[in-house]
Nucleic acid binder design. Structure first.
Lengths: 158, 158
DNA sequence: GATAAAATCATCCTTTTGTATGAAGGAAAA
DNA sequence: TTTTCCTTCATACAAAAGGATGATTTTATC
């Protein structure tokens, strides 16, 4: 590939011609050699084989080159970006909301009552009330619906 | 291309070996020929050249084959879906939710209390309560947080 | 181990929310 | 025109939610 780059373009034909001449000369020279040193025939044969095989490879690469060009077909696939919810950890820690509080908040947003949340988390309703109260303080709201709305805006809940 | 197809796969190496053996045999045969008929050397030389050049081309094609295939690049472009909220009118009429009820629902989802909603709409709290009760019946829920959650899921509110 | 933060629960009291029920005026449909 | 639905409002009661406060127990963290 890198080799073919050296011998491509307008000079390609010229170089090809020169190479062919050289090869013919080499053949003639080998002819004499063959008569004189008959014993070393295999070496020459292999040399010739390698030489012409290389030539063939070179020709093939040169001829095949335009066919190797890669066709990039870029298909634009539009995807709805409702994407996965990414929790806003910064805001969460900025407000100092704890794990339990977040948990309660999430269940709140799903429409559960304090009693239901207490049952789900195996806690007393009073505990849930405490958590929610703290939550409201931290979110600076006074109702669960407000908390849900604000938390959603801050990407604390989906 | 079509030729290489015949000699590709697992049998490739075997066939290659056989071919090489045949070529070596041919060379040996040519050796004798060369000594006997010295005059016809050029013909053999060309034959050998053509043979090995063909071999080279065949090898090159075989090696280059995987590079010819086209590459399809699928680019997934995320489309922002923050877009304008489209109210689900079908669901709305299916559930039989009235304008006022929807209005109350929207304000609910924004975190307003019944009293605040009443003030905003210049209505009595009792009226808001009536509306919300009807709303809950139609949405088959029993709490405003549930109503908000379900309504959002049904695309009745943003 | 001490300190701080988080989590747990309770009690008392107020506000909000929800349910049930009834009623009356107005607009649209049958 | 009658009926139905929407809208409005009221009263009374029940349930849920919220605020204030205090206390105990974990759990980190230094």
């Amino acid at each position: 590939m890198t080799l073919s780059k050296f011998i491509s373009g307008k000079k390609g034909i010229l170089i090809y011609g020169v190479t062919m001449a050289a090869i013919l000369f080499l053949l003639k020279w080998l002819e004499m050699r063959l008569i004189i040193i008959d014993h070393a025939f295999e070496i020459y044969a292999v040399s010739i084989a390698v030489l012409f095989t290389s030539l063939g490879i070179w020709i093939a690469i040169k001829l095949a080159r335009p066919k190797i060009k890669t066709i990039f077909v870029e298909r634009i696939v539009p995807v709805k970006n409702d994407g996965p919810f990414v929790l806003n950890v910064e805001e969460l820690s900025r407000l100092g909301i704890s794990k339990r509080e977040l948990e309660v908040l999430q269940l709140m947003s799903e429409g559960f009552s304090n009693n239901e949340i207490a049952d789900k988390l195996f806690l007393s309703v009073n505990t849930i009330k405490t958590h929610s109260s703290r939550l409201f303080e931290k979110l600076e709201v006074s109702r669960r619906t407000q908390a849900i709305e604000k938390a959603r805006r801050l990407l604390i809940i989906p």
